[in-house]
């Protein structure tokens, strides 16, 4: 797996990418809070929450197929729980939807709301991650007084995930190329554990080399970045539009 496969779109350039990371993170957090707070039987309201992130994704030039694939990948767990509502809430109701009428149950309403809420919050998070560099998010966390050691840990983790995933991938490929038939379970387990153990030992060796290299360059446990954040007129406009949108959704929610 390569680095570019996960957050490659964060390195594009668009008006949304140029927005201040603090504004985007704050708006995403508030929007997610709103989605969670929506009434439990309001699939239409939950659906409206898709609109804002969708606009950001389109303006940020993020392919919708990519977003849809990510959401579908994460959907099964929530779908299983949402579908249980059909079984446990069979109170009959009639859902009126414009010219359409559907004699159904409250379970269906709940299932639809839960799924729509999930997609809404996934869209909001995707819009944030695909338009903001992870290093900028770390800087925001540092500005918001998240403990420095946690920020450093996240930075290291982000940097070396891909290196070690490549190592594990090579180990796995080497094993596959040497495998002619499946061995008894006990032997397979022993080999698998040896493979993981070998990646662990390699990781520890790598960490020693990295530490030595960093200390040679003067690393003292402090995280410095030359990047400065400035709130620009475009950021104010973004926050104003986001406030209006969230306010409108809150108003609609209060009418339930």
């Amino acid at each position: 797996m390569h680095h570019a496969h996960i957050d490659k779109f964060a390195y594009q350039d668009s008006p949304i990418h140029r927005l201040d990371a603090r504004a985007k993170l704050a708006v995403t957090l508030i929007a997610t809070l709103l989605i969670v707070a929506l009434p439990r039987f309001s699939p239409d309201l939950a659906f409206y929450t898709w609109l804002g992130p969708f606009v950001l994704l389109v303006l940020g030039r993020i392919p919708i197929q990519f977003v849809a694939k990510h959401i579908l990948w994460a959907l099964p767990f929530i779908l299983v729980l949402a579908l249980t509502s059909l079984w446990y809430d069979r109170t009959e109701t009639t859902i009126l939807f414009g010219p359409f009428q559907w004699h159904s149950t409250m379970g269906w309403l709940k299932c639809l709301t839960l799924t729509a809420k999930f997609v809404g919050s996934m869209l909001a998070l995707t819009a944030l991650i695909c338009t903001t560099r992870f290093s900028d998010l770390l800087m925001v966390l540092q500005r918001w007084h998240v403990p420095e050691i946690l920020v450093i840990q996240l930075g290291f983790l982000y940097r070396y995930i891909f290196v070690l995933i490549d190592k594990a991938h090579h180990t796995k490929q080497a094993r596959t190329l040497r495998t002619l038939k499946r061995l008894p379970t006990k032997q397979e387990l022993r080999i698998g554990a040896a493979m993981i153990g070998s990646v662990l030992v390699q990781s520890l060796d790598t960490s020693t080399h990295i530490t030595q290299a960093m200390q040679a360059r003067g690393f003292t446990g402090q995280w410095h970045s030359p990047r400065q954040f400035h709130i620009k007129p475009a950021d104010w406009l973004f926050m104003a539009i986001a406030t209006l949108y969230i306010g409108l959704l809150l108003h609609l929610g209060s009418m339930y």
Partner: peptide
């Protein structure tokens, strides 16, 4: 600090290797 970061990354990497139960 480097060790902690690398071991975190190791868990991600190790999750790629499936073992028979």
């Amino acid at each position: 600090l480097g060790l902690m970061g690398i071991l975190g990354a190791f868990v991600f990497a190790a999750q790629m290797i499936n073992l028979p139960l």
